[in-house]
């Protein structure tokens, strides 16, 4: 009991996770949308902390807020001068089905998870599970996660193969991204003169 935190933290992080998503949806300015996305991902990091997943929370901050969001901001800046997108108004034949479909999807999912009874669920009133900062006091779960990733013992098998496949996937995707984003055989703009030095 003494290792649990107030449920207010859960509600605060839940609001920080959900509400900025609506602003990402509603705002016209893509830079503001990027910063609202930063707020939403920070709320997710807080929820991970409440679930005792401290290593995943730090990974979320480092990879998402430090990496992916910077990447998105670079994409915004490199593609910002877009006259078509700025002038075009939000059309009703996109807004109405989009909101209807999304609300229906979310409502159906919420109704499903609130009615479902998971056979292995803990009791909701067990505060040491749902809101404990860490299952083992202050030791954290980094050791558990690292052991699961690379070392197998008699209790569990490791995820070493998936770990290696993920690393190869990252390498291949970064090479592929560098190949795709190069300015090689992109057709020259209309006002450019085809010089002897080529493209």
């Amino acid at each position: 009991m003494k290792s649990s935190v107030s449920p207010l933290f859960f509600y605060a992080f839940a609001i920080v996770s959900v509400l900025p998503g609506i602003f990402v949806l509603a705002t016209r300015d893509i830079v503001r949308a990027a910063f609202w996305l930063l707020a939403a991902l920070s709320g997710f990091a807080g929820l991970y902390v409440l679930l005792g997943a401290d290593f995943l929370a730090v990974t979320q901050v480092v990879v998402y807020l430090g990496g992916i969001l910077i990447l998105i901001l670079f994409g915004v800046m490199l593609t910002h001068r877009d006259p078509v997108l700025v002038k075009r108004a939000r059309r009703l034949n996109i807004v109405v089905p989009g909101i209807a479909g999304g609300v229906t999807l979310a409502a159906a999912a919420v109704a499903a998870v609130t009615r479902a009874h998971f056979a292995v669920q803990t009791e909701p009133g067990d505060p040491s599970k749902a809101l404990a900062l860490s299952p083992d006091g202050l030791t954290g779960t980094t050791r558990t996660v690292g052991t699961l990733l690379v070392a197998s013992n008699e209790q569990h098998v490791s995820y070493l193969l998936a770990f290696e496949i993920a690393s190869v996937l990252l390498l291949a995707s970064l090479v592929g991204a560098a190949y795709l984003a190069r300015r090689g055989d992109v057709p020259a703009p209309r006002d450019a003169q085809p010089g002897p030095e080529g493209a």
Binding site: A14, G21, L50, L105, A106, V110, Q121, P124, G125, P127
Partner: peptide
């Protein structure tokens, strides 16, 4: 009493917003 359902509801809401985006 925060339980599993609370986290799942937050997840569903964020999923719906993401789908709408």
């Amino acid at each position: 009493d925060i339980g599993l359902t609370h986290y799942l509801v937050v997840s569903c809401l964020v999923f719906g917003i993401g789908a709408m985006i």
